[in-house]
């Protein structure tokens, strides 16, 4: 420090704007009773394929909708719309991840009270989305069997920021000599006790189990919200 300079202490979170919006979204989601699930993965790991299947099947029982982020195209929204669920594309342009404000503006005009599940497909990218809270209840990281078992070790931050890991395209496991033991060990190394589920959007293997998992997580979240409401009601002012 040269003699003329002095130090000012500050304490400001660089991502504060995103965090503020994400917190507001999370509150809105909870009030509306919609369970929000985001999906992250490398490009092409199978997010849209799994989501199309998920929307189609969950729609029979729940009110579901999806937002999908992409740098440039509307392809994924068009694929997801085949499920008949409400879908909106978020075109991010040069931005390599979704931010809470993009989710917020995409939801303008939507009545969240009319939804049970909202899915958010992030831009295919295992790096950038990890820093941005979107207000979701659950973050899924997909890793397809064709990517190699070492992805968790190469991208520990995103695996660490996620709640659940899905091993996707499990129908191709034998063809690519996928080593499930090594993959699981690597996932647990960067996120001990993480739930890991195998799925194939193509053959349908593991999809029912995945849907059960989503339903039970939603029920658990609703139970917590109900008991919090009861407590708030019972507490004297």
């Amino acid at each position: 420090m040269s003699p003329k300079t002095r130090m000012i202490e500050v304490r400001q979170n660089v991502l504060k704007q995103n965090d503020v919006v994400a917190r507001a979204l999370r509150e809105r989601f909870h009030e509306a009773g919609v369970f929000v699930v985001s999906l992250v993965s490398s490009p092409g790991a199978g997010k849209t394929a799994l989501l199309e299947k998920t929307l189609t099947l969950l729609r029979q029982q729940f009110r579901v909708a999806a937002l999908v982020g992409d740098l440039a195209t509307e392809n994924d929204a068009a694929r997801l719309a085949r499920s008949q669920a409400p879908v909106k594309q978020i075109i991010t342009g040069t931005v390599c991840h979704l931010e809470a404000a993009m989710v917020q503006s995409a939801l303008e005009g939507w009545n969240l009270d009319e939804l049970d599940f909202l899915f958010i497909e992030n831009v295919g990218n295992l790096v950038c989305p990890s820093s941005y809270d979107l207000g979701e209840d659950l973050r899924l990281v997909l890793m397809s069997v064709t990517e190699g078992e070492d992805k968790p070790l190469k991208y520990p931050t995103i695996f660490n920021s996620a709640d659940v890991a899905l091993i996707a395209k499990i129908d191709l496991a034998a063809a690519v000599e996928f080593n499930a033991v090594v993959a699981n060990r690597n996932i647990q190394a960067v996120r001990p006790e993480m739930t890991v589920l195998d799925v194939s959007a193509k053959s349908g293997e593991g999809v029912e189990k995945f849907l059960d998992f989503l339903r039970s997580r939603r029920n658990a979240a609703r139970a917590v919200a109900a008991s919090q409401r009861a407590k708030a009601f019972a507490a004297p002012d």
């Binding site: 300079t5 400001q12 647990q188 960067v190």
Partner: peptide, 26 residues
Amino acid sequence: FCCSECGTPTGEVVQGKELLVVGLEV
């Protein structure tokens, strides 16, 4: 992700996600 002292695996992160401006030299 395990304890550097005893080796117990844990995912309970208490520090390491910061992105904080803490000072300005002016």
